[in-house]
């Protein structure tokens, strides 16, 4: 299925969020996730289903003012 990851359309086979993160190469990276604009805590990723066209944001620490 196709989902939008950080604004980019990508093909994933995983149907759960935690599996998709592994498939996309995030592994153990320190990231936070939001699905269709709603925050998904790390503890909820294994039970969060993905659907075709879902918008997934994956954010990491960055410099800020």
């Amino acid at each position: 299925m196709k989902i939008i990851v950080n604004g980019q359309s990508l093909e994933v086979t995983a149907t759960l969020l935690d599996a998709a993160l592994g498939e996309l190469g995030y592994g153990e990276a320190r990231v936070a996730t939001a699905l269709n604009g709603e925050f998904v805590p790390g503890s909820a990723r294994a039970s969060t289903n993905l659907g075709d066209g879902d918008r997934l944001e994956i954010l990491a620490p960055m410099q800020g003012g």
């Binding site: 190469g25 994956i58 954010l59 800020g64």
Partner: peptide, 22 residues
Amino acid sequence: VTVSLRREAGGDQHGQAFWTLI
């Protein structure tokens, strides 16, 4: 110190490197 969050592509380690530094 103030910090922020930004998009990171899979496999990139920029965020992790910054977090370790801080």
